[in-house]
Write a protein that binds this DNA or RNA. Sequence first.
DNA 1: ACATATTTTGAATACGTATTCATTATAATT
DNA 2: AATTATAATGAATACGTATTCAAAATATGT
Lengths: 333, 333
Amino acid sequence: MVSSKEVAKVAGVSQPTVSRVLNNPEKVNAETVNKVKQAMEKLNYRPNSIARSLKQQKTKYIALISGPLHNPFFVDSTTTIVNHAKEHGYHTLVYFEDQGDNLSVYEEVLRQQVDGIILSSIFMEDPIYKELVASEVPFVMFNRRYQAGGNYVEIDNEKAGQLATNHLLKLGHTKIAWIGGPTYTSTFQGRLAGYQKAMEVTNHPVKPEWVKATDTTEKAVVQAIDELLLLDDKPTAFFAATDSMALYCQNYLLRMGYRIPDHFSICGMDNIDITAHAAIQMTTLTHESNKPLGLHAIEHLIHMMEVESEERKIMQLTLEPKLIIRGTTGPKQ
Amino acid sequence: MVSSKEVAKVAGVSQPTVSRVLNNPEKVNAETVNKVKQAMEKLNYRPNSIARSLKQQKTKYIALISGPLHNPFFVDSTTTIVNHAKEHGYHTLVYFEDQGDNLSVYEEVLRQQVDGIILSSIFMEDPIYKELVASEVPFVMFNRRYQAGGNYVEIDNEKAGQLATNHLLKLGHTKIAWIGGPTYTSTFQGRLAGYQKAMEVTNHPVKPEWVKATDTTEKAVVQAIDELLLLDDKPTAFFAATDSMALYCQNYLLRMGYRIPDHFSICGMDNIDITAHAAIQMTTLTHESNKPLGLHAIEHLIHMMEVESEERKIMQLTLEPKLIIRGTTGPKQ
DNA sequence: ACATATTTTGAATACGTATTCATTATAATT
DNA sequence: AATTATAATGAATACGTATTCAAAATATGT
């Protein structure tokens, strides 16, 4: 591997001069710059970022710890984050959350000396939070948050749950099922709370059997529906707490021969691209911001990384939800 | 930042001993190991991977240069690659191809001293290829390949094009449009060649206006369809060279009020998850392998990275395509 | 008890870069 | 011409780790 030392030798200068040509060319004589650049060209020299990182104590790496891409919500945010980071000179180490062993993921990430972390995979009460704070690496949570601390951007999940539920109530549904992921995450906790609140306020009892807080896989959704359909008081509408789950739900009901929304209404949440497809037409929820969640997050992270720690602003952003009515919800028959 | 030197001081040993406790604990006295581990615990020590990388001349990083995630094909491969790499101790730097300036992406990647590169974003005649070879970093191409060189895994695109086209011909369609991306990529070149061959063999002329080699965005697909529908000889079937494009196509035709497959048949390619959805039912193509393409690629890359360069095997894998007939293709009316 | 093998440890060094500091050469000012 | 400021450069060092080598301590065999 060709180093700045070899370039220096070929150019007949010292290694520091080569370094200066790269970083402060204005501090070095024009002729010398030329000599050095020629030598670089000749040797096909590429600066070693690892050595640079070690010396500078800055890696220009960020870590993205994302929810699984089978949920298209995270597809959009990953693209946004990776591309925006790159535009600002940052490289993105991507990890997907590992229910089993998230802690070791963070342990690994911190060893990489990343300049910042962006994550969607935190629980409301997650021991990782204080580890991250202790590490002093700037981090931003998006989609999910930790209790009420730190930097985050989220949707007002409770309000979203209310919006969805009220929409279904207004269509005449009273037996409404809630299907979502584990409620130790802020997203599902909020969306469930909103559903319960909307029912309560309008004096509609919530049968505990209607609430399916499981995991986000297709298998789990299918099983939840199987169970729901066996109930005496079986629901006529489903509020699925993510579009990904709503799609599994729609698919399964269609396969069983039901018509949507004639037999059942379905409401999702996230407004992922495919929900707008003419063959899908999923009613869903989005937020009122001209920027996607992931963009808010990465912009703020970059701010934090490029400013002294004393001057760092705190971002605690809770966006207003907005209902998008499409074809999967209709009046109760 | 707490270093191995500080741990050494607290433990009352030398820095190399700390290093040995981490990497060869069997080479150090059991009591000493304990002392050192306690000191690590006490100081909350985390080894600095950057320094380790510099010394070892191995980073345990790989770079993934992927096609855009709005094509769900790359969603699956990204997940597979990132997770499989992590299981083997590798961290993944993710980049998305940049039509405009892929070269600078590679330049950046090589500065990061990655141990290997995995990419889908190469052209059949791409100057990057010889740069990569010259860098001596192992790399594997998936989905697309460079002419006929290097390590790659792909589908037999030409055969796939034939399969799709023959399927449509058999249904009675003779005016078949081809919609795909730029033909300087092996994928689209092959899929187009297969389409042309199948038409030729069966003595069906191909009108040049039926072939839309554009780019892979929704906008481009919509425009292509607009143009196709204005033709005198307008096609009755579409072979879209990726599922992503096929979905755009299906969506647009449905929105215009057409029924699929009554008015038009559509065949995609890639067998991405959503195509199996009951509301989508996209006829598509996949390959006959129990492993996804991305997994073949990452497994081989790991092989290359963990073996001396002389013993590296070459992988040039061309998988057999297979047609999956669903609801978007039907007899010509 | 002696010689020899083995285990355990630390001093010194290297990886490739950026930075501090001192030195020399040159330009600007009196 | 003498002084002072400025520009250009290199020697030395540091970042945090792993490794080589030699030395010391201990165990093994006779």
